Every structure is written in structure tokens, then in C-alpha cells.
Computed example of a mutant assay.
Amino acid sequence: MAKIFRMSLKDIQPSQLYISFKKLCEVMKRFNPSDPGSIEPIPIKKLGDDIIFVDGHTRAFAAFLCGISEVPVYWEDEELDWEAYEICVEWCKKEGIREISDLKNRVVPQRDYEILWYKRCEDMQRDLEKKRLWATRFKPAD
């Protein structure tokens, strides 16, 4: 099991542009603001100069709404598509999202979330796959 420690929400860069209102409601039902230990640990990763949320944006946002400034985290060690995460972080920075509190005006209905976030990510993944396929097909000879 990964080592769990606490980290300030202000020190973690989001990698997601929106929060689903439906999911936030579900998380808030299980969340106990008087017991910060009720927050399931959130995976983070060092990506360039940033420490980013790999997952758990809704849990982190729920903590923010309840006035909790530190959350339990652990270093993600799974091999994920870090190029995709770099793109998502770049999107966030371009939109002025530098910490979880910056998502306060980006809580949207589930239907909008699926269009604004899921579809955007699916399009990005498709573009990355094309780019990678192109790169392997036309790789210069050594």
C-alpha cells in the first residue's frame, strides 16, 4: 500500500476543467466535514514542475467546500497516459485553474459534464492516438 500523507489543496494542480454536480452530491452524502479522515486518499503525481491530481477532483472539491485545507494523498505509481495528463493540465492553466478552489464556477449538470469534459477528453485521446500512430509509421530510420 502506498504511503498516505496530507497535503494542502493549494499545492495541487487540478487536471480537470469541470466538476459534475451529480457526482459532487453523491460525494457530499458520504462526506463528514467533522472527520477529515472520511476523505478517501487522493492520488497525485509530479508532472514537470507541478504536483497534480490524478483523480479525486470531486473529493478534493468537497473538502474545499467544507473548509478543509489539507487532504490525504498518495503518490500514484501506475503507468498512466501522462501525455494526456500534460494536455489536461495545460488546458487548466489556460483557463486559470491552478487550484481546486478555481473550479467553484465550473460545477455543471451531469449532461453538460459529459459534453464539456468527457467528450473533450475523448477527442483529445483520439488525436493523441492518431499522432502516435503517425509517429510510429513515419519514424525516421536510424
Rank of each mutant, 00 (worst) to 15 (best):
A2T: 04
F5M: 07
S8Y: 09
S8L: 14
I12F: 09
Q13G: 03
L17T: 09
S20N: 08
S20R: 08
F21N: 14
K23E: 12
K23W: 04
M28Y: 03
K29A: 06
F31M: 04
N32R: 14
P36K: 08
I39L: 09
I39W: 02
I39E: 09
I42K: 10
P43Y: 09
I44G: 05
I44S: 10
L47W: 03
L47K: 00
I51L: 13
H57P: 13
R59H: 15
A60Y: 08
F61R: 12
A62I: 12
L65C: 14
L65N: 11
L65E: 15
C66G: 12
I68T: 07
V73A: 02
E76M: 07
L80D: 13
E86D: 01
E86A: 06
C88T: 00
C92F: 01
R98Y: 15
R98S: 08
E99H: 06
S101D: 08
V108S: 11
R111S: 12
E114S: 07
E114F: 01
I115N: 03
I115P: 00
Y118W: 11
K119Y: 06
R120P: 03
C121L: 12
C121F: 06
D123E: 14
M124D: 10
Q125F: 10
D127P: 00
D127Y: 02
R137E: 07
R137S: 01
F138D: 05
P140R: 09
